[in-house]
Design a protein around this nucleic acid. Structure first.
Length: 555
RNA sequence: GGCCAGCUGGUGAAGUGGUUAACACAUCGCCCUCUCAAGGCGACAUUCGCGGGUUCGAACCCCGUGCUGGCUACCA
């Protein structure tokens, strides 16, 4: 046995398996050519961030478009920052956006043959690989204390040297295996570091799918790969997991770009094929004139739950995120107004480079557009799903009479240019409440917004009386309006607005004033959707009842 | 401090040597109209962070510089 082998045995006496065993256990995936394997690999440190949703959407689309595999992996090696239960919550929130992984960590269980998919449960796998690293002299135990390291750091800073554990400063890299074994036998605490052979002065060429070819300084840091708690650092876990999970495309935030040389060296040292990398821009927010990352603490829209709770349709949010991911999407959408968002093919080369400022106004506009394109069944189902989770009032309203609800929200829907009343499901209730008799009665307690300056109560009552006797609801929309003009004439109002404007003295008002009075009487509001449809939905009897009621109020 | 990336209107952006600098959101006007939601039309960057240079011609190429963001952990 060589000294290195002896050292590896001393550190990992329990490890009997080898990398070859792992290669067999996690065979290459049998996928068609061009199929992408990508993952969502969150840390369980809180609820889903809008930026993570953006990254996940992208990571999910590519496998989805290529018959590949999208899997989830929980990166829970940082036990200090972990928030209990947040891993499961992340998956639930993803599911709320219809992003369902093909395999991996699913919260309470996992699916697939490349697991475990929780890094804390992969300890043994990492140890197998690190044992091999030690044997091949690619890694070594480091006994430096945090005090020594911070002293080193201050020295380097004082002398304007690059900080870190590298080259001549990598003290423990000079220890012979025998010396290292001696220290271990004396129970000196240690971590395992990677033995870098890089030179900071050299440049390496790297390729990023989004940013193209770049030159970065070679890594020379002897980074920690196994922490004293026995868990690997991100860099090493990335190497092992993405190799054995057979990831083809690593999509991650651009904050990882500077550590790419580390990952390159790691893959090259062990002789594994590198995955493709795509470093995604981060969604930003303008704060006092400065751009900063969207922050969960400061910005409500940074938490995905904000959108869910406030009734934003998930397809609107996803569509907005696709819009910032690929700028040619909007153009495509204009050509394909009713198409499914996922008929659009996402591409890396159209990906934006700098972090977009999150634009809630645009989100709302897209949501409004999307909601207007749903048919009444889809709209009702989605509204009901939302209401069940977040809006009890709306829920009971829908449950009272689903067909009635559908007829209300179907006003001027399912046509070429549908009405766009709702940005979110939260908007529904205040817009449609007057259709419901008991809510109408409540609204009646507020003062009705009649134009008191122009019209005395007797005039209004006169209009109502005539209208009651001749509602015209038996006609179609045009016929009804002709009828309303007739009512106007009977009451001394001009049936034509332009005509009225030319000749104001001859009339009390115009047909618009008449319809406003009726609108107020039946809805308590000055603004409603098309009055004809409102009256149709309420029905002749109810319209009459409401008008009578208002006549009494005005008398 | 060092290294890396990015910088085109209020916002997202197209654009890679010759365009009136697309398009979308927002904003503001006007039109349509029984109100509203829409819809239609129009306005909104004399200029692409800034300064030089190359060129007949530069947002696009070169040099310098500024700003913003990221990284520089036994965090991810």
């Amino acid at each position: 046995m060589t000294d290195l082998e002896a050292l590896a045995e001393l550190i990992f006496p329990d490890i009997t398996e080898t990398i070859e065993d792992l290669e067999k256990r996690y065979p290459k995936r049998n996928l068609e050519k061009g199929a992408i394997v990508a993952r969502f690999a969150p840390s369980p440190t809180g609820f889903l961030h809008t930026g993570s949703l953006f990254a996940t959407l992208i990571a999910w689309r590519f496998p989805n478009q290529t018959n590949g595999v999208f899997f989830t992996r929980l990166e829970d090696t940082d036990t200090k920052r972990e928030i209990e239960g947040s891993g499961e919550e992340l998956l639930k929130q993803l599911a709320a956006f219809n992003i369902i992984p093909n395999e991996g960590y699913m919260g309470s269980y996992e699916v697939g043959n490349y697991g475990p998919y929780q890094q804390s449960k992969r300890e043994k796998i990492y140890r197998i690989v690190i044992k091999e690293f030690v044997k091949r002299n690619l890694a070594y135990p480091c006994f430096c204390s945090s005090e020594e390291l911070s002293q080193l750091r201050s020295y380097q800073e004082a002398n304007k040297l690059n900080p870190g554990y590298y080259g001549e400063f990598a003290k423990c890299s000079k220890l012979s295996p025998k010396e290292a074994m001696e220290k271990i036998k004396n129970n000196e605490p240690y971590v395992i570091r990677f033995r870098s052979h890089g030179n900071y002065q050299n440049k390496i060429k790297i390729t990023d799918l989004i940013r193209g070819n770049l030159e970065l300084a070679q890594n020379d840091q002897h980074i920690v790969i196994l922490k004293s708690d026995g868990l690997p650092t991100y860099h090493f876990a990335h190497l092992v997991d993405d190799h054995f999970m057979r990831t083809t495309h690593v999509t991650r935030g651009e904050e990882w770009l500077p550590s790419l040389p580390i990952h390159y060296e790691l893959f090259e040292a062990i002789g594994w094929e590198k995955p493709n990398y795509a470093h995604l821009p981060v969604i930003m927010k303008l704060d006092n004139g400065n751009r900063r990352k969207l922050s969960k603490r400061k910005d409500p829209e940074a938490s995905v739950s904000f959108f869910l709770e406030n009734g934003y349709p998930v397809e609107g949010i996803l569509e907005y995120l696709i819009t910032i991911a690929n700028s040619n999407f909007e153009e495509w959408r204009l050509q394909n107004m009713n198409a499914n968002i996922f008929d659009f093919k996402l591409s890396f080369d159209k990906m934006t480079l700098d972090g977009a400022l999150f634009d809630l106004a645009k989100v709302k506009n897209i949501c409004k557009e999307r909601l207007s394109r749903l048919n009444k069944e889809e709209f009702t189902n989605k509204a009901y799903d939302y209401a069940c989770k977040y809006d009890e009032t709306l829920k009971t309203l829908i449950e009272r009479d689903k067909e009635y609800f559908k007829s209300i929200i179907n006003i001027e829907r399912e046509k070429e240019n549908p009405r766009k009343d709702y940005e979110t499901f939260k908007d529904i209730y205040p817009i449609i409440n007057f259709f419901y008799n008991d809510l109408y009665e409540e609204l009646l307690n507020n003062e009705l917004p009649f134009n008191k300056e122009r019209f005395d109560n007797p005039i209004i009552i006169n209009v109502f009386t005539h209208f009651k006797n001749n509602m015209g609801l038996e006609y179609n929309e045009e016929g009804w309006f002709e009828n309303l003009k007739q009512v106007s004439t009977e009451c001394g109002f001009c049936p034509n607005v332009k005509e009225y404007k030319k000749n104001k003295e001859s009339y009390l008002g115009h047909v618009g004033d008449v319809s406003e009075m009726i609108r107020i009487a039946v809805s308590t509001r000055k603004n409603t959707p098309n009055l004809y449809y409102v009256l149709q939905i309420l029905g002749k009897d109810e319209v009459e009842r409401r008008i009578n009621k208002v006549i009494i109020l005005l008398s």
